[in-house]
């Protein structure tokens, strides 16, 4: 392998981060997306808008707020202290927390679309056949929305891998803890190690292409199936 040990460490860390964030967001984002898809509550608009904010906001805004909020004097910092964890900047779980906020729309929006496209009919049928709402959700809605789940998971994973600005602002660049691949590339460039930057950057390009290829190649089939 042509990558150095610290490069491999950065890649492994990135994969860990993206996997944990994807799993957490599947658990967190699914009920939120379901609620957004089904509700007629007036809060739907505001909640949807807040969750979509990371799509629009520059990472520097998120990074700045998170650095202050998660610090010892910030509200999140107080909360984590109460729970016995201490301040979260410069920690792996701090990055997880930030990434969950940052990648939220990439999980929620595809899921919400998938749930909405199911419509009321299949669920009404399930209900008349005696299925409880929870039962109907798992046996009817989830299988029908499966393509949505896949799209959402791939997008969330890929988006977390591509994270840079927020990590740079709250990570503290710790090898094996917060130095993810994107930051490692930046450091290589800053240190004028273009050769190493090229290698790691090439890995990232190849990976991103692969992810998008899977996503696009697989999409038309699901449409035919639907």
């Amino acid at each position: 392998m042509f990558l150095s040990e610290s490069d491999l460490q950065a890649i492994w860390l990135t994969v860990q981060l993206a996997s944990i964030v994807t799993v957490l967001l599947l658990l967190l984002g699914t009920p939120v997306a379901w609620w957004l898809a089904r509700t007629r509550c007036w809060l739907k608009g505001p909640v949807g808008a807040v969750l979509a904010l990371p799509l629009v906001l520059p990472p520097s805004v998120l990074g700045f707020y998170l650095l202050l909020a998660m610090g010892p004097h910030g509200p999140l910092g107080h909360l984590t202290k109460l729970l016995g964890f201490g301040p979260q900047p410069f920690t792996f779980w701090g990055l997880v927390l930030a990434s969950v906020a940052y990648s939220m729309p990439f999980m929620v929006q595809p899921l919400q679309n998938a749930f909405e496209s199911i419509g009321d009919r299949p669920l009404e049928v399930a209900a008349t056949l005696g299925a409880s709402p929870l039962d109907a959700f798992f046996t009817v809605a989830v299988p029908l929305a499966l393509p949505g789940f896949l799209t959402a998971s791939i997008l969330t994973f890929a988006h977390t891998v591509g994270e840079f600005g927020v990590v740079l602002m709250i990570g503290g660049n710790l090898p094996g803890i917060t130095r993810v691949a994107s930051v490692q590339i930046y450091d290589h460039v800053e240190a004028l190690e273009y050769g190493q930057a090229h290698q790691l950057a090439a890995v990232m390009v190849f990976f991103s292409f692969l992810v998008l290829l899977v996503l696009y190649a697989w999409r038309p089939q699901t449409q035919k199936a639907g």
């Binding site: 650095l67 202050l68 998660m70 610090g71 010892p72 004097h73 301040p87 900047p89 410069f90 503290g172």
Partner: peptide
Amino acid sequence: QFVQSGNA
């Protein structure tokens, strides 16, 4: 900034 925000 890391010091000013109290994180370090």
